[in-house]
Every structure is written in C-alpha cells, then in structure tokens.
Amino acid sequence: MTDQKPLGEEIDFEPDVDPTDPAPKPGADLGGLSLIVDDVHVTYRVYGGRRAAASGDELSVVRRLLNRTNRHIGAVTEVKAIRGVSFVARHGEAIGIVGRNGSGKSTLLRAVAGLLPLSGGTVYISGEASLLGVNAALMKDLTGERNIMIGGLALGLTATEVRERYDEIVEFSGIGDAVNLPMKAYSSGMGARLRFAISSAARPDVLMVDEALATGDAEFRARSKQRIDEIREQAGTIFLVSHSLAAVRSMCSRVLWIDKGKLRMDGPVDEVCDAYQEFTRPRRPAR
C-alpha cells in the first residue's frame, strides 16, 4: 500500500434522501451509553509552514529576519483542530455532525474512533468504532477481487469471512466482470461502488460516516441508503458528517454543531439544523 495514492476521497457516498422521509426519532427506547467524550483536544503538527507573526509592525529588524528564516527551517506549526469537546452518545442514536469546512468534524470523528492520538481528554467507548472507509488500504494496481480481500482483512474480517461475503460484496457493488480488472481501470463511480460495498461488509459497534459526495447512479444510492439503515440498526450508534442538511435531518435524531474546534451546539436535529442554517445564511452572497 505504500507508494500508492489512496483512491478518491474518504467516502464518496451520499444517501439520496427524500427530505420528507421521517427521521428516526428514538425517544424512550434509547439504550445505555455507548460513548463518552470528555474534554477532547486534538493538535496536528504541520511541517514546513508557519503562520505569519501576529503583529508585524513593532518587531525589530532582527526579529523579522529570524521570523523569516523560521518559516523555512524548523517550521512546525501546531494546529489545534479540536479544542475541548465533550458529549455522550447512546446505543441506537444516530448523530449528525455539522459545521463549516475546517471546523474539525473529520478530526473529531477520527479522534473519537481512536484513529488520531488525543492531545488531551479521554474517550470511552463500548466495543469498537469504525470509520466507513477502506480506501486507504486498497491498491489501484490490483484487481477488484484482490482488493476485496485486502479491504476485508484491513477492516478486521478473517479470510474465511471475506470469502463468505465475497459474492455478496460483488453483487452489491454491481460492477460485474470488472472485478477482475485492476481498480485503476475503474470509473470513479465504479470505484466508489466497490469501496462502499467492501466498507459496509464489516459491521462495527459504532459507525462513522464521514462527508459523503454523491457518486454512483440513483439505483446505487438507493441501495446504499438501505444498507446504511441496516447498519444503523445493528451498529448501535452512528455518526454522520454531511454538508447536506437534508440528509442529516432525515437520518439523525440529534446533531452536534462544531465550530472552530469547539462544540457550539448539541441538541435535537431540527433545533440545531435551524440554528446552523440561520448562522450560515448571511454568509451566502446575496442574489
């Protein structure tokens, strides 16, 4: 897998939702806690770039010169992507995450799934969290068939389990004979279908679906939404990051609004979505 570019984005899947679809609104039937996120902080270290000094005017010439060198040598910037987020989640809950680009949604998901080291705080979870996304494990030079094995094993299935589900995966992806071609020969839609089919073959306790882009045809999107619902019923807790508020409204009962690495709002889907919509509206250019 080294030297291989991950194929496409994380999840190129967006459920084709009907906004009138009633959102699941579990009330009293919520189970026990499945996740506790306690004051989580995540800091990235970025090499080879440094933000310009805050106040440039009153710096001496020497300081300015030093600053300039600093930007090229020993330039490590800390990006505080998540700054103290706390919440709890229950079994059977579908939680949407909204926020502007770069607000820290993906980072939060990865940190909560235990895939990014925390720089502060703690996460407690029941079972294992999994990000719906297997792209990074696949190798574009190899056939779909081989990649089903690699992806399935990467997701933690055993070889026997992968073989058992092989036909189901191929059938669900609907790519037919192309499964014997190297994945680099796939169209982006075909790749997305196969990746989604592989990803959804494993059934984790807490499932996280990050930012979906609509690829694939309508039939596949319908199938995928069905599969997502299925997984949600088994997964216990689902997190859905999406820029489509319609998707969030239709699939989630609760929404977290992340802004600049902090939890700005946490509440029932309509309340938070309305507030978020209100917040984003003035930013759109007036027509």
């Binding site: 792209n135 997701l155 933690g156």
Partner: peptide, 12 residues
C-alpha cells in the same frame, strides 16, 4: 509516514 491515510482510517 507513507501510510498515514491508512493509519488514520482503520484500526489495526
């Protein structure tokens, strides 16, 4: 370092 994407998406 060359498998960061993999490390950041799956548990193993």
């Amino acid at each position: 370092t060359s498998n960061l994407a993999l490390v950041r998406s799956l548990h193993f």
